[in-house]
């Protein structure tokens, strides 16, 4: 487990991290969401031993990062948001350099590097110079580099930034694979819909403080106090809206256009099945009937707006 207790970090008079408390159980993909300047990168750097905290503690598997920094660095793989690469090094040489730092030698080193290149789909680029790779390839290479010593924990600061949509999808698949391998991943990103797809839990941080944490569903229910159902019909949209408005426990109904309506309700799966039966019995031509994935952007805007008002 990764545990942060009362973490504070000051830059002069400016408090970047303000009494942050977090717990990340093993095997989770933990999302770290917040606006620019919220303290995400500072927190990640403190975890990785790149910055010292003003006060507070960070524990990895029960050990304070300050007490045994080298031992804990062998458990962490770090990928910064902005990073450079070495000119005149080939892709395999780049990975082998970092493997040598972690005392991975001989045939084992070659095997590790080959396996990692295969994981991030850069095998065909092994003999290319690193500075000739595209941005997305460099990001994938940096991810491979952070895995060279088989760490238990990955701290990834905006790993998908600057990537095209295809590359982001591939990155998500890699992260899912890593989770299945038992890695604990802490990931920060501004691409909120994708975070909500892969994170098992997350925290929203602003002005150095955690303002909300939990799974996406838990956060949704805290913020909205209700659930949402999205219904797409072939036609009879007005009748659909009328039926929903008349149904008890439906709080509000909104016409989204393109024959799509969203209704917020208080209820459970039994309620939803009954609602579907009512629509079918009234000969409403239902095309799709589903609960949309938690809209993290809406949650983020709502939560941070509340903090601004305070």
């Amino acid at each position: 487990m990764l545990r942060i207790e009362n973490l504070c970090k000051n830059y002069g008079k400016f408090r970047a991290v303000n009494n942050l408390n977090l717990q990340i159980p093993k095997g989770e993909i933990f999302g770290f969401v917040g606006p620019n300047g919220a303290g995400k990168t500072t927190t990640m750097k403190i975890i990785c031993g790149l910055l010292s905290a003003t006060s507070g503690k960070v524990f990895i598997d029960g050990v304070n990062v300050v007490d045994k920094p080298r031992a804990l660095k062998s458990k962490i793989g770090y990928m910064p948001d902005f990073f450079g690469v070495y000119d005149d090094l080939k892709v395999t040489e780049y990975l082998e350099f970092y493997a040598s730092i972690y005392n991975i030698t001989g045939e084992n080193r070659k095997k590790v590097c080959n396996d990692l290149l295969e994981l991030v789909d850069l095998t065909d680029k092994r003999d290319f110079y690193v500075d000739s790779l595209s941005r997305g390839m460099k990001q994938r290479l940096c991810l491979a580099r952070s895995l060279v010593h088989n760490p238990d924990y990955l701290v990834l600061d905006e790993p998908a930034s600057g990537m095209d949509p295809r590359a982001r999808i591939e990155m998500k698949e890699i992260l899912r694979t890593l989770k299945d391998m038992g890695k604990t991943i802490m990931i920060s990103s501004h691409i909120l819909p994708e975070l909500s797809e892969i994170c098992t839990s997350l925290v929203i941080i602003e002005k150095g403080q955690a303002v909300m944490s939990g799974t996406v569903e838990e956060i949704m229910s805290k913020v909205y106090h209700s659930k949402t159902i999205r219904i797409k019909v072939l036609d009879k949209i007005d009748e659909t809206i009328r039926l929903l408005q008349e149904y008890p426990d439906v709080i509000s109904v909104e016409n989204k256009g393109s024959n799509i309506v969203e209704a917020s309700f208080k209820g459970d799966d039994v309620f939803l099945s009954e609602l579907l039966v009512i629509l079918i019995q009234n000969k409403i031509p239902v095309v799709s009937f589903n609960q949309p994935d938690g809209n993290l952007e809406d949650i983020f805007m709502k939560v941070t707006a509340t903090l601004e008002e305070k």
Partner: peptide, 14 residues
């Protein structure tokens, strides 16, 4: 300046 120092410092190298 090349932004490679942080990665180096995050390793176990003394």
């Amino acid at each position: 300046e090349k932004q490679t120092l942080d990665i180096l410092l995050s390793t176990t190298m003394k």
